[in-house]
C-alpha cells in the first residue's frame, strides 16, 4: 500500500518537476518570481485539449502546447519584466506585474472556454494497467514518467553540456560579467523564458490527462505547490527543484492517503513555512537567503 502510494507520488512528482523547473529557472537568471507561470500551465492543457478535440493526435497537441506556451512565456517577459529590469525595481514590481499577466491570461482562457470544465476524450489514451511486483501502473502513468524523465534529462544536457547552457549559467552568476565575454543576456533570457513556458505547457497537458479536469483556474494550486518545491530545493537550483518535486509528490500522496482530507494543504504549507524558517535556501542550499542584516 505504502509502496503503491510512493510510486504514485513519484509519478506526480515528475510532473511537478516539469512545472517547478521552469519556475526556478527564471528565478535563477533574473531573481524574478513569475506568478503567471500557473496561467501558462493552464494554457498548455487547453491547447492540447483543443488540438485533440479537432481529431488530431495527442503528440501534435503536446507539440502545439510547447510552442504556444513557450511563446506566451516570452511575451510575459517582454510585457511584464523587460521594462522593470531597466528601472531596477524588479523584485516587487515583477510579482505585481506577473500577477497581472496571470489574471489576464486566466480571464481570456475563462472566456474562450465559457468557464467549462473540460476533459480529454476517453479514447485519447488507451487504458491499460500493468502489474509489477505487486505494484500497479497505468500506461498513462508510464507515459507521464517517460515525458517528465525525457524533458528533465534534456534540460540537464542543455544546461550542463552545451554552450547555450554555459551562457545561461554565466548569466545566472553575473549579468555584468557575462556581457564582458560578449554574451547578449537578453537573447539568453528570451530563450530561458521559452524553455520555462514550454515545460509548464507540457506539465499542463500531463495534468490534464491524468486528472481529466481542465479549467481556467487549474494553475493556481500548482503555482502554490511550485512555491513549496522551489523553496524546498533552493530557489534557482535546478537539481534541488527536481529532487524536491519528487519528494513533494510522494509527501503529498502520502498525506492524502493517510491523513484526514482537509488537512493536506495545511500540512504542505506548514512544511513550506517551517523550511523557510529553518533552511531558507532549501534543503540543499548553502548560503543564507538574501543579503546582510547585520554582522555576517
Amino acid at each position: 500500500m505504502i509502496a503503491q502510494q510512493l510510486l504514485n507520488g513519484l509519478i506526480v512528482g515528475g510532473v511537478y518537476a516539469l512545472f517547478a523547473l521552469g519556475f526556478t529557472l527564471v528565478f535563477g537568471i533574473q531573481k524574478i518570481l513569475n506568478l503567471a507561470h500557473g496561467a501558462i500551465f493552464t494554457v498548455g492543457a487547453f491547447v492540447s485539449w483543443y488540438v485533440v478535440s479537432l481529431g488530431l493526435p495527442l503528440l501534435l497537441g503536446i507539440l502545439a502546447s510547447i510552442v504556444v506556451c513557450g511563446l506566451l512565456s516570452m511575451l510575459v517577459e517582454f510585457v511584464c519584466f523587460s521594462r522593470l529590469r531597466k528601472t531596477g525595481d524588479e523584485e516587487f514590481g515583477a510579482i505585481i506585474s506577473s500577477i497581472g499577466a496571470g489574471l489576464v491570461i486566466m480571464t481570456v482562457v475563462q472566456r474562450l472556454s465559457n468557464t467549462r470544465v473540460l476533459r480529454f476524450p476517453f479514447e485519447t489514451f488507451p487504458v491499460r494497467i500493468y502489474e509489477f511486483a505487486g505494484l500497479r501502473i497505468t500506461l498513462l502513468q508510464l507515459f507521464m514518467v517517460g515525458c517528465a524523465a525525457l524533458l528533465v534529462l534534456a534540460l540537464y544536457i542543455l544546461i550542463y553540456r552545451t554552450s547555450f547552457g554555459r551562457r545561461i549559467r554565466a548569466v545566472t552568476d553575473n549579468e555584468r560579467a557575462s556581457t564582458l565575454v560578449a554574451i547578449n543576456p537578453n537573447a539568453t533570457y528570451r530563450q530561458v523564458y521559452f524553455i520555462s513556458g514550454a515545460l509548464a505547457g507540457v506539465a499542463g497537458v500531463l495534468v490534464g490527462l491524468a486528472f481529466s479536469s481542465i479549467h481556467f483556474a487549474m494553475g493556481e494550486p500548482y503555482l502554490l505547490f511550485a512555491f513549496v518545491i522551489v523553496i524546498l530545493g533552493g530557489l534557482g537550483s535546478i537539481l534541488g527543484a527536481t529532487i524536491a518535486a519528487l519528494l513533494f509528490g510522494m509527501m503529498q500522496t502520502l498525506t492524502i492517503a493517510f491523513l484526514p482530507s482537509g488537512l493536506t494543504n495545511t500540512i504542505i504549507f506548514l512544511a513550506l513555512f517551517l523550511i523557510l524558517m529553518v533552511r531558507p535556501n532549501g534543503l540543499f542550499g548553502k548560503e543564507a537567503a538574501g543579503a546582510l542584516r547585520g554582522r555576517r
Binding site: F27, K31, L33, E91, I95, L224, F227, V228, I231, L235, P260, G262, L263, T264, N265, T266, I268, F269, L270, L272, F273, L276, M277, P280, A289, G290, A291, R293
Partner: peptide, 28 residues
C-alpha cells in the same frame, strides 16, 4: 520573528504560505 530572518521574495512566499494555512485550517 521568523519573518525578520527573511527578505524580499522569501518574505512574500512565507506570508503566502501563511495565508494558505489559515484558509485550509478554516476549512478543516
Amino acid at each position: 520573528l521568523p519573518l525578520s530572518k527573511l527578505r524580499g521574495v522569501y518574505q512574500a512566499i512565507a506570508t503566502v504560505a501563511f495565508v494558505q494555512i489559515v484558509v485550509s485550517l478554516n476549512i478543516y
